[in-house]
């Protein structure tokens, strides 16, 4: 294995958050970003071909080692406690924030026909949603958006990787 690949592998292993190409470039200044990207791609393939329990995934703008999806039943046993699942109300609210961000609470209330305060508070606590700012209209309502943690938890490279929904696109088209 090329020394640089070994270094990158070690960096990803030791990094708590998904490791970005930029960060690697800071650590390996003599390597071009392009080169780093192709090394990362090679490493990803290597893990894939090996067919082991770990794979290298690009999430939240960086690279992270993750367990293979089909091994989940065993890992859940290891983790004992039930995973913190989101309620349907929280999922609906999160979906609205993700697809319509930046948006204000009244918009969520309107779409769901229910007050979203509780769901939003839970999402803020879980750090899946964050406050982006305040809208410049009377009352200065808070504007919400999703966090990097949202991308990490939902296994997304970036927001553009959100599954496109025909229904949502149709609605968008009507609004414009």
């Amino acid at each position: 294995m090329e020394e640089k690949v070994a270094i990158i592998e070690a960096l990803i292993f030791a990094s708590e958050a998904p490791l970005t190409v930029e960060r690697v470039a800071e650590i390996l200044p003599d390597t071009e970003k392009k080169g780093i990207v192709s090394l990362l791609e090679g490493l990803t393939r290597e893990y894939e071909e090996r067919g082991g329990g770990i794979c290298l995934r690009e999430v939240a703008g960086g690279f992270q080692f993750r367990t293979r999806t089909d091994l989940a039943p065993w890992l859940r046993k290891l983790k004992a406690g039930r995973p913190a699942m989101l309620s349907p109300a929280a999922m609906e609210t999160l979906a609205m924030v993700a697809y319509r961000q930046p948006l204000v609470k009244s918009e969520i209330d309107r779409i769901r026909g229910v007050d979203a305060s509780g769901a939003l508070k839970g999402l803020l606590e879980k750090k899946l949603v964050r406050i982006v700012g305040r809208k410049d209209v009377p009352g200065k309502p808070i504007i919400y958006g999703t966090t990097r943690k949202f991308l990490e938890v939902f296994n997304l490279k970036d927001l553009s990787e959100l599954p496109t929904l025909r229904e949502l696109r149709d609605l968008q088209g009507q609004q414009e």
């Binding site: 080692f65 993750r66 367990t67 293979r68 989940a72 983790k79 913190a84 938890v153 997304l156």
Partner: peptide, 10 residues
């Protein structure tokens, strides 16, 4: 989606 701490783990 494969959710962290439910389907995939770091």
């Amino acid at each position: 989606r494969p959710l962290l701490e439910r389907d995939v783990f770091k």
